[in-house]
Amino acid sequence: MNKQQTIEQAIAQIPAGAVVMVGGFGCPGTPFCLINELLRQGQRNLTLIKNDANESGIGISKLIENGQVDKLITTHLGLNKPVIEMMNDGRLEVQFHPQGILAEKIRTAGAGTFGFLSDIGIDSEIIQPEQIMEWQGQRYVVEMAQKAEFALIHAAQADSYGNLVYQGSAMNFSPLMAMAADNVIVETSCFGTPGSIHPSRVHTPSIFVNAVVVLPQLSNEYGVLDHHVRY
């Protein structure tokens, strides 16, 4: 039941060409250490699924800028210039979804179902004609579930079974992705034995988690970014 692994072991399971979900909205929730290990091991032709591309030079932007990513399924690239340029040059395929639709596609996969109906963007260019269906006089968009082979997750706290707690706005996509991927790799700097987290505080129950990597401490990447501070 002990799911602790070394970071090398855990990331080495990801083959080239894998579809990998990555938690995080901006910095909070981004598993920087797992991403850095994926950068070091160098698996290529990856498809990444993440809310955003992080900022230039940090998080998954490193993997993209290093040419390890063929396709990014996302909602927003913010002001990440290198990634926007790679998209415009055709060096990176980008698939955009409305943010809550991407979340719900992932949640749906995590719930073991296959799709849902929505009306978001129904009159916009992001919806393909074949996605539209009519039912009892109403038009709907068919949205299919989005799963993945792997998910990389940062948790504020984890136990050896894989029960997870998130902190602040670092929750975002993480509990959804932890349910939707076949193989869930978690990093945490706060690790304990079973029972160290009260059952009522568990956000992601242990059985969704496959590997827990214990970080000796959080690096500067997890700290405050000076350019976002209002003085």
């Binding site: 910095c27 809310n51 602040g168 959804l176 209002r230």
Partner: peptide, 24 residues
């Protein structure tokens, strides 16, 4: 708190009675 931002990346706090939740 570096783990607490708004959707634009600004660092924030929460007022009494606030809550955190996932994207879904």
């Amino acid at each position: 708190d570096p783990f607490l931002i708004d959707s634009a990346g600004n660092y924030i706090s929460t007022r009494p009675g606030g809550s955190y939740f996932d994207s879904a």
